[in-house]
Design a protein around this nucleic acid. Structure first.
Lengths: 207, 207, 207, 207
DNA sequence: GATGAATGAGCTTTCATTCAT
DNA sequence: GATGAATGAAAGCTCATTCAT
């Protein structure tokens, strides 16, 4: 009796957190539509009904999975980027960090890569505020670079942020789905730095 | 008799085509999982069961929607690109054409943008051959440019094609989901040409 | 044109017969409920719709399969039995012939064994007249035997006919379903003769 | 509170049993293929989905209906037969009991008579272990009788058990389907005892 | 008569959600 | 708060039957 109490009460009410993490795992494994609430519950070690105490429904759980995960990522990124001396290194660091993040945390990566897309669609009303925050890290670096005179002023930060994210996203997706190795992520990072910083056209060529 | 009947009925047995187009519309409107076979059927003006005469199941319909649509797009792109004199103009033309295509055909765009993703996931076994063909148009231009000496040899065509597609894709998604106006697409095209051809870093800055 | 006409008209309109035979095969192979009208059609080499020219519906086809098949069997049995000199040999011959018939014509056997049962049920209104005719062959032999003084008068022909048919049926079913060999049918025939003619109790034992 | 609630609800969670009994009724009424899961559910007073908590699917429900019902019957038969002094009376008692059982429980009878057949077919892989147990009660009596010297040694218990069951089965079917009265069952029992114990041929007649 | 493409009613099964305990 | 048995709506798919040719 004591033992079981200790066990069940063990981590106070971390149930919210546990469900969230179970959500990441199961959404990653099965995709949103194929994820079963009961599977998430059992992964989290709670009863099915318990999920509905902490989340309004399955959709909201997915949203929270994004939001909370991104919150952590954003915080971490801001710390990492603060250590970089200039906007150009920040941009490089962003690219590397985004891809490294995936490697460390594939389940979350799959949710963000794949489910964010399909959910964007069926949850049209949901505006992914955190995701915008994440994108704006990029835009902010660009603006900084423009102020510092190292990034061309004709570049639109709002479009650039999506272009870069899209590129990262597509390469990540390919890496996730096609089970590419570690080297593929490294090459991707190097190449993206080249492309987004210097472009592909040879210097001196008129375009 | 035959002729007039065929005419009044629509176009004889264009049912395959009609279902395909209804599929595009409904998948775009609802997403794959929320699209109801019965809705596709009624959109196509056929009975539910008729869909199963032409397609093995709902999954196969989605696949065919991609394959057939992309086949048309690829053909069209190859014609358009053939008219461009050099690899750099081809790359620009590709970017513009991709975005113009979306504008003309929003429903198809939504399916390709969003559903391709979520289906990639649950149809892991399906290898989207046509999509690879599409991507390879980009890679081919890069290779051409490298041979012609106008594109830097250190650029990997295989990674570049995904980076560019990802960027186009993300901007398109944003345009589709956030109902941005026509100008947004134009700016996107211009900016992407700048970014991917010349990079964002000011000339003369050491990186 | 000539060739195809010759072919299609080849056997005049034996289509009725062909469908009937296809019905036997497919009902035997799949059971009534799992038999597809289209499979019967293709087995018969006709179009699906053609079946509805010759038969009101699937149920009626099943009924006709029984009736027509039994008609042939009854005719054959009457010929065979007419050659037997006395009621007791007739009874023996009936048992042997019933089992031999199965061996020659397993598909029909399965239909009669299995589908007759389940169809009796869902087609409650249908009274299998031909089947009664078949059973009455047995009853008639018993009556003959009673008149000739070789069969005990206290035996009810109406109950005996069903008892014997049931026994034959059950052994046949076992043989059909469990893929027993030829010997099993021979032993069955021998044993049934023993049991139904002489009973199982040793002579002299009081019961 | 607990007790009274349990009482008012029926019998606590007898849902398994209730579904089983509803299954017997509906399978008997409609046959396996025409029985609707929703009808069984409403007959049992539960929701459609509840059936799938207790049974894997409709097929398994049918199997369980057999197995559980036969288990009860076999137990009852063994008790009844144990009270009979000798193999011959046991055989008589078996015949009477089988037919009496039907009378008491017509719905179950119909399922066993009719659906067992059609299911044997479509569930070829399912080996009706309980049914074999039931048959073996007969075989065992025969063996006992042979050891006791009251049943002829040339009778094969394995064939006899099927012959007797088939006869009982056919008469029962006729009784069930043709709505024969109580007397028909009595005559059937008497006649079967005569036939299976003493045969139909008059004593002294050479066969 | 013959065809076979088309129909659409109707089925089993799943699973998010509820609520009595 | 926590549970998990029960719910029941809803959807993909099948296939007997029809009917324009």
């Amino acid at each position: 009796m004591v033992g079981s109490l200790a066990e069940s009460e063990g981590q106070a009410s971390d149930k919210y957190q546990r469900i969230l993490e179970a959500g990441i795992k199961v959404f990653a494994r099965k995709g949103f539509h194929n994820a079963r609430v009961s599977e998430i519950a059992s992964e989290a070690g709670v009863a099915d009904g318990t999920i509905y105490i902490y989340f309004k429904n399955k959709d909201e759980l997915l949203i929270k999975v994004f939001e909370e995960s991104l919150a952590g990522i954003i915080e971490r990124f801001e710390q990492v980027l603060a250590r970089e001396p200039d906007p150009v290194s920040k941009l490089k660091r962003f690219i590397w960090s985004h891809l490294e993040l995936l490697e460390e945390n594939q389940a979350l990566a799959e949710v963000i890569q794949v489910e964010l897309r399909s959910s964007n669609k069926f949850m049209k009303e949901y505006v992914p505020a955190r995701f915008f925050e994440y994108l704006n890290i990029i835009a902010e670096i660009v603006r900084e670079g423009q102020q510092a005179g190292v990034i061309r002023p004709e570049i639109s930060p709002g479009i650039f942020k999506r272009a870069l994210f899209g590129a990262l996203d597509e390469l990540s997706l390919h890496w996730v789905l096609r089970k590419k190795g570690r080297d593929y992520l490294k090459s991707s990072a190097e190449q993206l730095c080249e492309i987004f910083l210097k472009g592909v056209v040879k210097e001196g060529i008129d375009i």
